[in-house]
Write a protein that binds this DNA or RNA. Structure first.
Lengths: 254, 254
DNA sequence: CGTTTCTTTGATCTACTTCAAGGGGAGTGG
DNA sequence: CCACTCCCCTTGAAGTAGATCAAAGAAACG
């Protein structure tokens, strides 16, 4: 299994970009049944009597339609979330109205950590497509983490991983050229898709060019131009939001 | 007391940029005695029988000389740290050698969280001046967090806060102009200095222009030019690394 | 006190932005 | 099922913020 490090030019290792679990193995994710959280939270390491406790936590599944917010900056923080299906973006709104996309969450990934520091969400989370979301009450989770070392470890790693992921994005924004940023982003999404049991090479990227630009610190025009350039060089094949990676090594070489 | 939000144009609220404590109050920090950690970890909320437990954790104080590493990317992760005196920078090294400064840690602030996800440090932490560092074994800390809700909460908030801090920096790198970045950075350091009981208006910034540039995603020349410009406009008074903020509102207005 | 490293400032260059306009796809309503 | 509308995407042309190159001056350090 490729490590994310191998894919991303940015040298921060992500153990398990996922969530309250150690890496949901390819196969596990692929046959994900009712709720991603079951798999995400269960895997290796929990003893059989711990599993029901965890399951009891997962209160509800919430549907969020394309464009709607799962939560908004300023909302009270009560839950962590895991994307069951669909995808979301998280963003910060500057007081002058400028928006910065801080992350993209794919199926199987976690979000909500931006609320831990202040009991108040610092980001807004907006669905990029109709999505369903598993809800995990934070208070209950904390209790469980005091009972069970494994769960404590899992939560800590989740937090640590998101921390490292952000640091990695800081490197992207601070040090890479526009072309490198786009290549890096495509490889990152490709890798994450693959980790959850989907195709390495082809995926729907529901973000608009503008969202990508915001996430990468460049303009939508630049994103578009670079994607066209990549296509001309036979690195990718992009039809709007459907992206097919043709030459993964070529992208990595950038 | 000014909230960091008020200072920083970037709209992520930092509860307590500090550490395992709720905000070390101005006064507390000012009369900091033997070890910053004592104050950082003790304050409000711990019952008297919890305090000794925490103190028992603080194993050692380590000295790091200017330019030396407290830890390096790839090192095994065992401890969290709190800066007792001095300051450090954390950075990621890209495989092609490019470095990105990910943070500046002042006296009273915590570091080491980059190791949690993988049991391996993702950053390197380098002293910007001769510094002394309190060491907090992570394993022991985890145990304590399972015993004591207060400590658990404190650790979670610490992690959450660093997460939000990074997100805030993503906004800086992704959306602000060079001038805004520098102004924002000066205000941030000023605010953090003040929170730890030092001057709001005047401080030694031990980073080089190059470090600042790396942290802010611009070149050292640009940093230098902008500082000169600020000086001409009577916003600051900079003599090398000694920075005096003359017109804090003017800086905020940028 | 000399050497090195950091900082400032100027001149030029360029990667990316901004402005602008045309084209295409997806959803909606007829 | 088609046509309309809206939004998004693409591509071009021109402008600019910031990078790069260069060189001199100022601290810091042994």
């Amino acid at each position: 299994m490729l490590s994310p490090t191998a894919v991303s030019p940015v040298a921060v290792r992500h153990a398990n970009p996922a969530s309250l679990a150690s890496a949901p193995v390819r196969q596990t994710a692929a046959r994900c049944s009712a709720c991603a959280m079951r798999h995400l939270c269960m895997p290796q390491g929990l003893t059989s009597d711990e599993i029901p406790k965890l399951e009891a936590l997962i209160c509800s599944v919430r549907k969020v339609r394309r464009g709607e917010a799962l939560y908004r900056a300023g909302d009270h923080f009560d839950n962590l979330y895991a994307v069951r299906s669909g995808s979301l973006k998280t963003l910060i709104v500057h007081r002058d109205g400028r928006e910065q996309i801080t992350g993209l969450q794919l199926a199987g990934e976690a979000l909500g950590l931006d609320g831990i520091a202040n009991d108040t969400h610092a980001f807004s989370a907006i669905a990029l497509e109709d999505s369903s979301i598993c809800t995990l009450p934070y208070a209950a989770l904390k209790n469980l983490c005091r009972e069970t070392v494994t769960m404590q470890d899992r939560l800590h790693r989740l937090m640590g991983d998101q921390f490292n992921r952000e640091a990695s994005q800081m490197m992207v924004l601070g040090s890479l050229s526009a072309e490198e940023r786009v290549a890096n982003f495509l490889l990152d999404v490709s890798e994450r898709n693959w980790q959850r049991g989907y195709s390495h090479a082809e995926f729907h990227l529901r973000m608009s060019r503008e969202d990508m630009g915001s996430y990468l610190g460049i303009t939508l025009e630049t994103v578009s131009r670079i994607l066209s350039r990549f296509q001309k060089r036979n690195l990718i094949d992009a039809q709007g939001k459907l992206i097919r990676i043709v030459d993964i090594e070529g992208l990595r070489a950038l």
